[in-house]
Write a protein that binds this DNA or RNA. Structure first.
Lengths: 201, 201
DNA sequence: ATTGCTAACTTAGCGTCGATAACTTACATG
DNA sequence: CATGTAAGTTATCGACGCTAAGTTAGCAAT
């Protein structure tokens, strides 16, 4: 087994970062996170399997941690996109689109984070999402919309959760069943229905 | 290995039914369909592993076929519930509730059918759902709503897909993250938002 | 009644996997 | 220079999906 050089004393945590980056990279080469074997990851990193288990309690936790990297990147993307947008409605739609775009572009981490059974040894992925994906920003937008009279009198947090539930539904179906004849602009339709409803005004 | 009697000549397909029923039963004892091992299923059936592989090309197809049984049962439940309901709005809400109730009550088959990567060797699960879960009935309801002026001028099939996307989002999140602080009556909120929107009237 | 054919299985085993106990080696510190 | 311990490796366990090859039971034709 060809292994890379050992880290200097006290720098063992460097390996952790390398494991995460390598795993995140390998995720893009596969259809489902679980398809990655610990052995394959270890070989790509240049270490042996037990070396990985010194940094992560089990395979699932490793995959979750690697997927978080991608998630955080999405959070920053959304923040950047929304920063230049003053219109509240546009801001909310931008968030939704960025989220679905991320899911479709990175189905492996998305599926592992939001569509798999949560691993009790890993942090709760929904809380993760709320902290990293600008959920609080979304709540803020909705609160502002309510103040300006653009939203009905509901709790912004509740509306945000309902909103995100639907957006997740879109992402989830697009990922699980690509190539299916979804209505064109499914997301826009979902957003419109959430905004105006289907009962005639 | 204690195996059961061999089927009479030409009745080998009897085993297939028994495998499916046993697998469906075992699914309720586990947190995820993939946790069931082919060996465990074979033992519960009272046959050996290769006997199972004469009826299903691989493990995933076996699990899918077993999950369909439960799905069809749900379809019949929905039909029965809806039959006695004349109000269109109530009928659509009944469908949604029955669907989510099924998902929460049978998370293992639901997850396998709608939240896993589709197996090319198995029938498309979304089409399965559309045929078995009263999707066409839902489209009919929406068309009727449109005729009576209860729904805006949109294609009923498209609206049904958007509608179902959101309902699936609810089911998916309730399953993947139970015990989380979802808004009480999350589904009712989703349905209301779809009906009336969040933009004040 | 015996033989042959084939459906309905079983035996045995391959390669892979996640995980771990037990050992080794390099290095900072006294 | 001795030594403790961080940072790894070696070797292995039990379970898994799957399959090639062998076996047995029952019906059909002679």
């Amino acid at each position: 087994m060809s292994t890379s050089a050992r880290s200097p004393r006290g720098q063992g945590h460097l390996l952790r970062t390398e494991i995460l980056e390598t795993t995140a990279r390998l995720m893009a080469t596969v259809d489902e996170a679980e398809e990655l074997s610990v052995r394959a990851i270890a070989e790509a990193v240049g270490k042996t399997v037990p070396a990985l288990y010194q940094h992560f309690p089990d395979k699932s936790s490793l995959l979750t941690a690697a997927a978080e990297h991608a998630l955080n990147a999405m959070g920053e993307t959304i923040d950047a996109l929304v920063a230049g947008e003053t219109d509240i409605d546009r801001r909310l739609r931008t968030r939704a689109h960025a989220f679905v775009d991320f899911a479709v572009a990175h189905p492996v981490p998305y599926r592992h984070l939001f569509m798999s059974r949560p691993n009790p040894k890993s942090p709760n992925t929904i809380e993760l999402m709320m902290n990293s994906v600008g959920f609080s920003g979304m709540v803020r937008d909705l609160a502002e919309a309510k103040e300006v009279g653009l939203m009905i009198d509901e709790e912004p947090t509740d509306v945000a959760m309902v909103f995100w539930t639907a957006v997740h539904g879109v992402a989830s179906l697009l990922i699980s069943h690509p190539g299916l004849a979804w209505p064109e602009d499914l997301l826009e339709r979902v957003l419109d229905q959430h905004a105006y409803g289907v009962v005639p005004r």
